[in-house]
Amino acid sequence: MDAGEEKRKRSAGRLCCLCKGNKAALKRPKTLEQICKECFYAVFEEEIHTVIVDNNLFKAGERVAIGASGGKDSTVLAYVLSKLNGQYNYGLDLFLLSVDEGITGYRDDSLETVKRNEVQYGLPLKIVSYKELYGWTMDEIVKSIGLKNNCTFCGVFRRQALDRGAALMRADKLVTGHNADDIAETVLLNLLRGDIARLGRCTQITTGEDGPIPRCKPFKYTYEKEIVIYPYDLCIYSPNAYRGFAREFIKDLEKIRPRAILDIIRSGENFRISNSTKMPEQGMCERCGYISSQKWCKACVLLDGLNRGLPKLGIGRARAP
């Protein structure tokens, strides 16, 4: 008996509850089922296929941008989507879309990961830079405004970058790797902030259907734990910045009651907004067409300030026209 075989024997605990043949390798948080690796890959992919079909996420012939950050979610999403696209003949024209903020050194690792994915999955990669999207790199913005205020720019520009990039690359749709844990966290944060408009939007699987580029989240019901385990021996992603307290709270809840994540998403979905609540009007930016409740969107206000040499414009309470 060699060492490997001995090890398998020793830890040969329960059998997979699906195939009843192999040894169980993980406990699914969603269902608490104990399943083997082979069955896990199959149900993981099958569930995402079901979500895609049940929600009519795509139409044949669509050109779909996969927002690719080099992180685990978008990497697994790219892999699974391209696999399902082949297996079930979705007829999608998929490509990877990454944003280069133009911060020296900052994106090197993650862009390397995305370039590896381009080769591994055979998906074309488009990298759009802040320079192309906004006319400014982050380094140039920092030079112009100093380090103190650049977070305002970062947040606003980043939020719009994928949408603008997808439009630039003439995509019909943008998909992102937001998973069930992300969405549960967003539901909680929007509840805590009392942001009813965002609360309503954040649980929708597709948003922006009235805008230039609809965005959808095929991993809406996919647990982070499974996304992390799915490719783990491939070691294909680069870790990103650490996340905050709401995320930790989600993980604490998951530990006590794994279904809590789906329950939070459901409660967000079931939230009803009374008709007497005044909702901010969703309009379009007059300059760029991005969704905005003001005449100009936040990015355009900031850009206007930058271009006119008044970079403080749009930060805090100051407003352009």
Partner: peptide
Amino acid sequence: VRPGVLVLVNDCDWELS
């Protein structure tokens, strides 16, 4: 481990062992 850290022992979810 803090919640959110996955543990695998010999390729197996430690929740099973």
